[in-house]
Nucleic acid binder design. Structure first.
Lengths: 220, 220
DNA sequence: TCCAATATATACCATTTGGTCTATAGCCGC
DNA sequence: GCGGCTATAGACCAAATGGTATATATTGGA
């Protein structure tokens, strides 16, 4: 019987991926052991609090990543640099729309009450950090707040659409659109409608019949 | 033993509400019987296919509602009238953000594969119908498509945010913002940044500490 | 090299799960 | 008012669930 040794951080990312695929309720311990390769023994060694503990640690881990890669830069660094960095970080984190947001997913299903606080804090901090950066970049207060909310919400919505339409082009298009909207807010001279020129064959997603419905690629 | 007689359509709306609250996996038959008042016998009388059958019929029912109240008007009626009607229908359907979208929720969790087709068709039709109406209203093709996607995705995202932040103001603000964006696309003269003047105290949602975390009001 | 500490694998357990079956309450046509 | 039929209630069941206990393999330090 081959014994594989795991690092806890590795366990966290693996289990996180299962939660992303199946949701909290849908991720049975059987599925988790099966998909991660970790036995129950290992899982309960790393997460003595069981499934709920896994979810908590995973959310904390994701949050930490966002704090480091997105929130703190937005709060601390030069605004435009931080915002540019955000677009890159988001696109890479969500794998161009193939990955969903655990906080968003948990917000919708039954788990929302159990993890309400971290979920709320995550979105609150994101919106506020972005808001602050926009203001520092010269956007007026009211517009900044609204734009920040628009962006964070828009990203979540596009992740839903990407999953629903089974295509990730919608995610890239949305990021591009939101990015343009920020640019427009920063240089209010030329007023393109902030749409148009998002040229990734818009019908692509909707028109595919069902695609590869088998195992979903899990990024890396 | 009091025996209550139910109509099937009543059963559908009740069970739908439970799925909205708990998600597909989270809605155990126990919770369903408890919250709807329908016994297992009644449930399996109405839905011989069990939970999966319930979900299918419920999705079909929701879809039907949207077809009647939103999609067909968008496809058929005078564009501006239909779009105005859409904002009202959406706001009332989602109870100003207190209710989530079953299609969106199912798209994210494990159930997505099981109900992939209706989910995809729902979003596809919504986007295309809105796209078409915008074009008929005089918006150029590329902008219309992008705007339609923006709106449908934005609504989904704001529902996630509303749940996450435990406040529905974000939903109303988003609807107002999207509505303004359509208005701007229709009358490209005055170019307000399509933000600003969304005056519902933007910090409201984020700042509350935890609020009434007990049973969520279930609309009517 | 040996031993203690630790991490893994898996058998096992009580509970809950979705689903079925039986009994019966209430409604309908007559 | 009566009898058959339908819809409801709830006991019941096998399977799956989250969680625990035990046995064992591996590691690192003395």
């Amino acid at each position: 019987m081959a014994r594989t040794v795991f690092e806890k951080c590795d366990a966290i990312t693996r289990v996180a991926e299962v939660f992303r695929e199946l949701g909290f309720e849908g991720a049975s311990l059987y599925e988790i052991t099966e998909r991660t390769g970790l036995s129950k023994g290992s899982l309960y060694h790393f997460f003595p609090e069981g499934k709920e503990g896994m979810a908590q640690e995973i959310l904390a881990d994701v949050d930490q990543w966002f704090v480091r890669e997105v929130f703190e830069p937005l709060e601390r660094d030069e605004a435009c640099v931080a915002i540019t960095r955000m677009w890159q970080a988001i696109d890479s984190y969500f794998r161009s729309g193939r990955r969903i947001c655990l906080f968003g997913a948990f917000a919708l299903d039954e788990t929302r009450d159990r993890f309400a606080k971290p979920i709320r804090l995550y979105f609150k901090r994101w919106i506020e950090a972005l808001d602050g950066a926009l203001v520092r970049a010269g956007v007026d207060a009211v517009t900044a707040r609204s734009l920040a909310e628009d962006i964070v919400g828009g990203i979540q919505g596009s992740l839903t659409l990407a999953r629903a339409l089974k295509g990730d082009a919608v995610f890239s298009r949305t990021l591009a659109r939101l990015q343009r909207r920020v640019d427009d807010a920063l240089s209010p001279k030329r007023k393109s409608p902030s749409y148009a020129s998002t040229r990734n064959s818009l019908k692509e997603d909707c028109d595919r019949e069902s695609g590869a419905s088998g195992r979903r690629d899990r990024g890396e």
